[in-house]
């Protein structure tokens, strides 16, 4: 699924390269060692994947049949905010062992699930749930134009700008 979706990979943007480079500088020795296994090819494919759809989730299983409670929680929260299927793409890392290892290095994040919004890494399950509770996730999804803004019914802490 992952591989076939990526066959058409071509180039990555300069901005994306810069983000990847700045990420690399902040790594611990252990992760630097691991990073050697991430090929440029794999990196490009993932970069394209995270930029191809507004919301991208790397998870265990599928939204209909999640294989892990953390992945299920993330998908449920996104669903609860009304993220439509055409704005979200999920990749099942259990179906692709190469993706499973490379995504951890790409994001510099050791666990799955991982959520990207508009090409930016947002976080894993804890962060998504935390942002959901604080109202931050809704704001972010609105800003990213993934879900429509609801003017009258905004969360209490948001300003009326």
């Amino acid at each position: 699924m992952f591989r076939s979706a990526f066959r058409a990979s071509t180039s990555i943007s300069l901005a994306a390269r810069r983000t990847a480079a700045s990420r690399r500088t902040a790594l611990s020795p252990g992760l630097q060692l691991a990073r050697r296994y991430l090929s440029d090819d794999a990196k490009q494919k993932i970069q394209q994947a995270v930029e191809s759809t507004p919301v991208v989730v790397f998870m265990k299983g599928t939204p209909d049949l999640p294989q892990c409670g953390f992945s299920r929680a993330v998908v449920q929260v996104l669903d609860l905010h009304g993220v439509s299927p055409e704005k979200m793409k999920t990749y099942n890392v259990l179906e692709d062992s190469e993706l499973r290892t490379s995504i951890k290095e790409f994001s510099d994040w050791p666990t799955v699930p991982q959520v990207y919004i508009n090409g930016e890494f947002v976080g894993g399950c804890d962060i998504i749930l935390g942002m959901h509770q604080s109202g931050e996730l809704e704001n972010m999804l609105e800003k990213a134009e993934v879900i429509p803004k609801i003017e009258s019914d905004s969360p209490p802490q948001s300003s009326s700008s």
């Binding site: 790594l27 611990s28 252990g30 691991a34 510099d108 050791p110 666990t111």
Partner: peptide, 8 residues
């Protein structure tokens, strides 16, 4: 995460 990279 960085501190626990060995454990991961």
């Amino acid at each position: 995460h960085s501190a626990l990279s060995d454990e991961f």
